[in-house]
Amino acid sequence: MTLKSLVLATALLLVPVGLSAQTVPSLMQKIDSVMELRSNITAKVELTQQRVNQGTRVIEMMYRRRDADDAFMIVMTGPEVEKGNGYLKMGDNFWMYRKNTRTFQHINRDESIGGTDASAEDFEQKKLVELYKPAKEGPDAIKKEILGKIPAYKFEIRAKANNVKYPKKIYWVRQDNGLPLKEEAYSLSGTLMATNYYLSYANVDNHYIVNRALFIDEFEKGNKTVMSLSEVSLRTIDNSVFTKAYLENLSK
């Protein structure tokens, strides 16, 4: 759980408002509205991956994303072996750029990105309300809990179709503004696969952006990733950025 969570994490961008209707669909819609950026974001991302028996690996990248036309670009800046490589998505097209061979290659939605366990399909824009439905109806569907010292709503959702990566998820969102605090993802057989903690949010131009998150691999105990965002900008990204030429020039 690394780059996939980055998509969600960088999308958690909103002006906080109080939540009036406390139903699971409304909370899901809230997360969707947060995920749908409808704007631009540029950020420096550092992922510190800790793997059992493999030590720690730091992956650095520049991340640019524009939701209006479903475009994003990742340029790897570290480690040295990955430096200059990149990924570009424009609509349905997803390319991988390799600096050594100076070539672009179409990649499938199920291929790994940057040596992580995330794949291209994790970057597809999908709405939670389209993929999931509440696991329970009625007053029991949402529970109030204190997470740390923060009052949160806890709710469970189930996939509507059989092609959703995690068939079951449990969310904890802040009661005051709907910001996700914690997320659990389960496999088809009901095993807890991942727990994600959204540890802190930064206020950038009156928007909240998660700038520190912890992703725990629950299946392979001991594997975890810490994500940190810095140099965040919400300035409009020029059209020329989301092009092969730009990615190629950047990697020179």
Partner: peptide, 15 residues
Amino acid sequence: LRVRLRTINGQQQTA
């Protein structure tokens, strides 16, 4: 032995 895999539909699965 616990295994993790991806189903043909793209779901995470364990066995």
